[in-house]
Design a protein around this nucleic acid. Structure first.
Lengths: 356, 356
DNA sequence: CTGAAAGCGCTAACAT
DNA sequence: ATGTTAGCGCTTTCAG
């Protein structure tokens, strides 16, 4: 029969009785606080084991009047958010803190997620790529420490941890220049978080290489449809670029599919660089050269800031920029032979000669 | 100064004092239990508002000695899990229950997720596509009600809610037959959850249409690489099928990219059906015809089972199958003219004539 | 090193 | 209709 189920979970008292000690002693053992003889410690642990006792978190948190819980607000459908959440779990491991997840989705707003987390009295909030207005975030920050990830936000009230997107875009451009490209366009992300930085990085890198006259901004976006549009826009021009850096992988994938369908070989006739190193980029049929973010570093930073501020009355330290890295796959190559002649200007010239 | 931050959250007592009533009264109002005059009710609400009071969930749960929380274990990186979680949030809305999320990832096992949820004393567990062994799940089910979603599991100890994959596969096949295809292959999912059912559905549908001799199983899998392989396998055969149903969208997308790269037009020369209606299927550059699962129905079912069993000592009702639906996009069409002549056998013939 | 006792912020009888 | 009084399961002093 299944009727052995509703047996109420063992309590600390049960364990104490079984071990023949006081409740306080059990508590001490489970917090592994000092003040319990090795013998008793073992005795307690054994009793707990037999009863398969597990301390009740709610009661714990209530009792010590600190929740030691960090709330994390993330977008359920964002691949990269998932990655960050995973990393956050990792770095939270032995921090003495717990993570509480508040998911966001088209049908579930950020405020809702935030509210439920606050109702559980988490001590700090990590907001991943929030769409909340700066004002709302600052209001929130007056109630509890707030750490914003993956979104630029100029505010002294919160910590901001994000990838150095200006540099990420630069990496992409420099990689292409290193291969010998000069006509390099950027399919930008409009008003998406990070888009402005990546656009600026692109421009800066082009200028730094003396290619300001080649700067070409294509209207892109976050989705593959946006990439499609950008590709059509590009192909309709009289002179196409030989390489494109896209706002993100999705957009790049859209471009990839579109140009290939029209007979433009990638990377033979066009080099393409994405951004994010998301799953789609590593698909064998896509194999996108892209710019990856260091999820682990971002998570470690964010958590340590959150904890620091929960533990003390520390103030926000401002913005932390984590460096991106270039992931070279198979959508970038040297430009076709009929590309404009390279002026010897770059300091790191492309490989001298290769029989392929 | 930010020093107005660490102000401890208002407690029920604070509200009571401010409203000039007893704590119990406040409690009554906030549980909206009967037994408070409209006047006092308003007074309390007003006081709470001014103090921006929010009841402490932990204390609430502890006090009523029921957590009214349902734990949900899901894979952070699974698109479809995210969809289900979102739907679960929706249907939980006014159920009087809360959801607690336990995420799973390569670096965070299911047992870990389950354990943390249990430590919060949630009253039931919804496991989305768990990889836990049947034995482990049954053990778990002796501690608290367990509902398994999106995985077949023959067990009287748990509720199982999943899509009727046999029928889903059948839908795909019948769609293709309706278009006039006869040489229909299936790129199967090996040992993945659901793969056996979809394979069987494919076989059954083929047999039912008198096409048992055309049954062709291609070795596929869950990833686009698997799809690539399946496509290569297919193209290397002397006579290729005119249509393929794939285990999932990923696999279908892999096939799509591969065959197109080799000059096979989709849907002109080959029709392709995916499974899951995941995001990739709706991309404009993919536009995959696919079989969709009814996330909302699955979620509603799962939640109601979980609550029913948490509320009473109800026993598991066994398996609930939710019907899938066909989503027709642009990777399926009538077979090329050189396809084998259709025998007039199907009851629903393809559209009589179309000038295209 | 151990045990008694007072909370933590709430719920839920039970009186009034 | 309102207030009183125990808990819920744990933490944390503070005496023994």
């Amino acid at each position: 029969m299944t009727s052995d189920r509703p047996r109420r979970p063992a309590t600390m008292e049960d364990v104490a009785i079984r071990a023949g000690v006081s409740r306080a002693l059990v508590s001490i053992v489970f917090r592994d606080a000092p003040g319990a003889s090795p013998v008793n410690r073992r005795r307690v642990l054994a009793a707990a084991e037999e009863l398969s006792y597990r301390p009740d978190q709610r009661a714990r948190l209530l009792g010590r009047n600190r929740s030691r819980t960090i709330g994390v607000v993330f977008g359920l459908h964002h691949e990269f958010h998932a990655e960050l959440v995973e990393r956050l779990y990792q770095v939270t491991q032995d921090s003495g803190y717990e993570l509480a997840l508040g998911a966001t989705a088209p049908t579930r707003g950020e405020r809702q997620a935030v509210q439920s987390l606050i109702d559980y009295r988490c001590e700090a909030l990590i907001l991943i790529g929030p769409f909340l207005s700066r004002r709302t975030i600052e209001e929130l920050a007056r109630e509890l420490p707030v750490v914003v990830m993956a979104r630029a936000l100029r505010s002294r009230a919160v910590d901001v941890i994000r990838t150095d997107d200006v540099n990420g875009a630069r990496l992409a451009v420099e990689h292409l220049i290193g291969l010998g490209h000069r006509r390099i366009a950027h399919a930008h992300g409009q008003r998406a978080p990070g888009a402005a930085e990546r656009r600026n990085g692109y421009r800066a890198a082009m200028r730094a290489a003396g290619l300001e006259r080649e700067i070409l901004l294509l209207p892109g976006g976050l989705t593959d449809e946006d990439g499609e549009r950008a590709a059509r826009h590009m192909l309709s021009r009289t002179s196409s670029p030989t390489a494109v850096t896209a706002f993100n992988d999705q957009c790049a994938a859209g471009m990839l599919a579109t140009v290939r369908k029209r007979g433009v070989g990638v990377p033979e006739n066009l080099s393409l660089v994405g951004y994010d190193d998301s799953r789609i980029a590593s698909f064998a049929t896509v194999a996108l050269t892209t710019v990856g973010q260091d999820g682990y570093a971002l998570a470690a930073c964010a958590l340590s800031r959150a904890i620091a501020r929960a533990d003390s009355t520390a103030e926000p330290t401002g913005e932390v920029l984590v460096p991106p890295r270039l992931v070279v796959r198979q959508t970038t190559a040297r430009p076709a032979l009929d590309a404009p002649v390279r002026r010897s200007r770059r300091s790191d010239p492309p490989p001298a000669s290769r029989s392929n």
